[in-house]
């Protein structure tokens, strides 16, 4: 492999990785608070992409707006819409059975995923829909590698959103409450932390991140489909586990690492096997270091 090819694969891997980061942060936030792997995140990712397409087509009818502004507004509304859906779903599924065993919550989130995906397939888009994107034209030079504007946007948004989440978690009252609940929900409640509100807001935040990722990726691929969420799912999970479930920085490291690894791997293997590579990474990580790359604390043993 030539040095240039290597370099460009790494850059492209980082770009793909920033999607994994966004999705993985969503998983890891909810896991941290509830010890729940929320499969419904994957359908929220899809919803974000569809909201992007819908908003884009509405706004672009209004010709005065420059297309870049439309792009930003559409992606933003994808995030906001997905955040609201995340909040609403949590209020409808998690809240009524919050005292149920974890198993029931897991199954409920799985059913939500399937239901939303099937509804989108049935009513909105049995076949993939085109997603408009104004940034595909010009190529930008990023560290000597030519990438499209939307690639660059994805990377910038990935890093930016991570920074915002990091500030939110470490510097705000909500972040403090979130960390308190994640550490020990019983004592947090006893100390007066509004547990239900914190959990619901965490769902909203995780939903917004997933929705933003869905919108950006949809725009980058140029199409959105009902099953795009499930397809990204394994990558998001693997990124979260790779960095250490429940650890936000772990999700960042895990996402970028996975992006680069799978980008390098498909220079050797056919791209259809990308899932297989990710799965292989997951098996190895769980077998060798189940706490993830960053985490030093013990993982929840069985």
């Amino acid at each position: 492999m030539s040095l240039h090819l290597l370099e460009s694969e790494i850059v492209l891997g980082l770009i793909t990785g920033s999607t994994y980061v966004l999705v993985a942060i969503g998983f890891t936030l909810i896991y941290g608070v509830l010890r729940l792997i929320n499969f419904a995140q994957l359908s929220i990712y899809t919803i974000g992409a569809f909201v992007y397409v819908g908003t884009y087509s509405v706004l672009s009818a209004w010709h005065q707006l420059p297309s870049f502004v439309v792009y930003v507004l559409a992606a933003g509304s994808g995030a906001v819409g997905a955040g609201l859906v995340g909040f609403g779903l949590a209020a409808c599924t998690w809240f009524p059975i919050r005292k149920a065993p974890n198993f029931a919550l897991l199954v409920a989130s799985l059913a939500t995923l399937a239901l939303i995906q099937d509804l989108i397939e049935l009513f909105l888009a049995p076949i993939p829909r085109a997603a408009p994107n104004p940034l595909t034209g010009g190529l930008v030079n990023l560290l000597g590698v030519a990438v499209t504007g939307s690639d660059l946007a994805l990377l910038v948004v990935g890093v930016g959103a991570t920074g915002v989440v990091a500030l939110l978690v470490t510097r705000t009252r909500f972040g403090l409450a979130l960390r308190a609940v994640a550490d020990n929900s019983t004592s947090a409640r006893l100390m007066g932390v509004p547990y239900t509100r914190v959990v619901l807001l965490t769902f909203a935040l995780a939903g917004a991140l997933a929705g933003l990722a869905g919108a950006m990726v949809g725009a980058q691929y140029g199409e959105v489909s009902y099953d795009m969420g499930v397809n990204i799912g394994l990558f998001g999970f693997t990124a979260a586990v790779l960095g250490g479930m429940g650890n936000v920085w772990g999700a960042v490291v895990g996402g970028f690492t996975l992006g680069v690894v799978s980008s390098l791997a498909i220079t050797v293997l056919p791209s259809a096997w990308q899932d297989a590579i990710t799965f292989g990474v997951l098996i190895v990580v769980l077998a060798v270091r189940p706490t993830g790359i960053l985490s030093t604390r013990t993982v929840d043993r069985a």
Partner: peptide, 28 residues
């Protein structure tokens, strides 16, 4: 073997991946 020692949720992820792999293998 690697998964069942961990919190039982990890099995959900692993088996999800396993299902995908078998499907991809069958297809390719």
């Amino acid at each position: 073997v690697p998964t069942l020692r961990l919190h039982s949720d990890y099995l959900a992820i692993m088996t999800l991946g396993f299902g995908l792999i078998v499907y991809i293998a069958a297809e390719n």
